[in-house]
Amino acid sequence: MRTRLALATLGAAAVAVIAPAPAPAQASEITTYIIGGSTVSSAPWSAQVYANGRFTCSGTIIAARWVLTARHCLSPSMSVRVGNVRLGSGTAATVTNTYAQNDLALLALGTSISTSYSPLASSDPPVGANNSIYGWGMTCYSGCSPSTQLKTATVRVTGFTSDAYGGRAIRSTRVNGNAWKGDSGGPQYHNGLQVGVASTADGSATQNYGSVAANRSWIRSVSGV
């Protein structure tokens, strides 16, 4: 069984356990966080995604007015904070519109943000590659508070599968950390390029990230990036 990775509120405990071909769910049903790994001192492209004023997911700012995150993170009232690794800090911006394909989502911002943007890959990483994942979250499986600082971990690509909405996804396994309860929408990088967006995980070692390359033409058509 796999679990979708979004966090509706910082105190949320319930998650929705789903089968390999899940039906769409609401953000309030689902959660993720990096277990293990280490903290990050600088990540100007990082984005904190908020629903109804509360932190819910991770993401990346890919252009002055665009944030990339997961579709299952979407809610009617959204905002972001960008450019700071400390949870609750950074430049705030409202979300004026949302767009989705598979388990990827684009958030249109009401304010232009000047920072270093996340570069996007046009091809998937090879099987066997060591990639980096990023997100805010708890440091253990239960009984821990979410990390107040952005975390990163190394994972190894083991193959390809489907994301939470049936799109192509990169499957990876833990090297020194793994995604769980709080990282939804967070990035996976290979050779400095964002290759994935956190979608689902099994809670112990395996995570599936929606493929940026498979959705690259859609991202370009919506955002111009």
Rank of each mutant, 00 (worst) to 15 (best):
T161H: 14
S116V: 13
A43F: 03
G224I: 10
G186L: 07
Q188P: 01
S204K: 12
V85T: 04
A92I: 01
G224V: 06
D163Y: 02
Q194V: 14
G203V: 06
R4M: 11
W136C: 02
Q207T: 13
A43T: 00
N131A: 14
T96R: 15
G37C: 04
N102F: 06
C144T: 11
V95T: 00
S172T: 05
L106Q: 09
V222S: 03
V197F: 02
A121L: 06
R220G: 07
S184G: 15
R216S: 13
D103I: 05
S46N: 09
S145Q: 14
I35D: 01
P20L: 13
G137S: 09
N97D: 11
A51V: 11
I170F: 07
A43S: 01
T9K: 04
N52F: 09
S122D: 11
W218V: 03
I35N: 09
G166N: 03
G59Q: 07
T94M: 12
P20G: 07
S223Y: 05
S199C: 12
Y33F: 01
G137P: 12
T60D: 10
V212T: 12
I34C: 07
V82Q: 06
R156S: 12
I61E: 06
G143T: 02
T139E: 05
G196H: 04
D183S: 15
W180A: 13
D202S: 07
P20R: 09
A92P: 01
M1I: 03
K151E: 00
S42M: 03
T148S: 07
A27F: 13
E29A: 11
A51E: 05
Y141W: 14
G186K: 05
Y117A: 04
S114N: 14
T148L: 05
V80E: 01
H190I: 02
T96Q: 11
G143I: 00
F55L: 09
D163Q: 03
G143F: 05
G88W: 04
G182L: 02
A64G: 04
T200I: 13
T31L: 11
N84S: 08
S172P: 00
P146I: 06
Y189S: 05
A201W: 14
N84P: 03
V225T: 15
T158E: 12
A213T: 02
R86K: 09
A6M: 10
S42I: 00
I61S: 03
R2A: 03
S199A: 15
T206V: 15
T60L: 09
A6Y: 11
S112Y: 06
V175D: 09
G110L: 09
V175T: 10
S42V: 00
I133Q: 08
T96Y: 05
R71A: 11
F55R: 01
S58C: 14
L68D: 03
A201Q: 11
R220P: 04
L120K: 07
S77D: 08
T9Q: 05
R54P: 01
V195D: 14
G37F: 00
G59V: 08
N208S: 13
L74G: 02
A51L: 14
S38I: 06
